[in-house]
Amino acid sequence: MKSLPPLSPAEQALMDLVWQRQPVSVAALLDLVNADRDEPITRNTLQTQLTRLEAKGWLLRDEGERIRLYRAAVQAKKGRGKILSELKQRLFSGSGLSLVRCLVEEGGLSDQEIKDLKALIANHKKGGKP
């Protein structure tokens, strides 16, 4: 994957919405972004963020006859992998074990998620793919 610049938390949140709903219009994104906000952002603010994501290489814009649609330039799995890799490096000195330990010890994983993680590790040891 080509080198992409890191994302701010707001940009990451937008990318998550795009990955879930793509292709998605500015109006639909604005509704999604503001759904749970006490203080909604404006269309201009959102458009600025989308333009920045496009310039960074994370988004692609499709110009329709009457509507502008955005879609991810990077697959969700690869994009999230890049974000996680940066987080792991920044917060855990590159240690995946430290990242997972933090999730487990700080209560970030449910019992079912821990069970699934154990099964994933067992499958990985057997040479299986996730």
Rank of each mutant, 00 (worst) to 15 (best):
P6K: 05
V100C: 04
S8N: 10
N123C: 06
N123H: 11
R71N: 02
E54I: 07
G64Q: 05
S95M: 05
F92P: 04
D31T: 11
A28W: 05
G96V: 04
S85N: 09
G57F: 00
A122S: 14
M15P: 01
R80E: 10
T45W: 06
M1Y: 09
I114D: 03
K56W: 01
E39I: 08
L60H: 11
V104G: 06
I121N: 06
K77F: 10
D116W: 04
A76Q: 04
P23A: 00
K88A: 05
I121G: 06
P40H: 00
E11T: 08
D16N: 13
L14A: 10
D111I: 12
E11A: 13
R80Q: 15
E39L: 10
V104I: 15
G79V: 06
K78V: 13
L53Y: 02
M1E: 14
P5V: 06
W19P: 01
R71T: 01
V18M: 00
N44S: 15
K78H: 12
K118P: 05
L84H: 06
L84E: 02
L59C: 02
V18Y: 00
T45F: 06
N34D: 08
A28L: 11
R90E: 09
L50W: 00
Q89M: 07
R43T: 09
E39F: 08
Q112Y: 13
Q12E: 13
M1Q: 11
Q20C: 07
H124R: 13
V100G: 02
N44Y: 11
I41T: 03
I114T: 10
L32A: 15
G81K: 10
S85Q: 13
E39H: 09
A55E: 14
E106H: 14
V18N: 00
L32M: 09
R21I: 08
A35W: 03
Q75D: 13
T51Q: 10
Y70K: 03
A13F: 10
D111M: 07
A35P: 03
W58E: 03
V33R: 03
R71F: 00
A10N: 14
D111C: 06
D116R: 07
E39S: 11
K126T: 04
A76M: 04
M1V: 15
I121C: 11
A10C: 12
K126H: 06
L46F: 00
M1W: 05
Q20F: 05
C102F: 15
R66C: 04
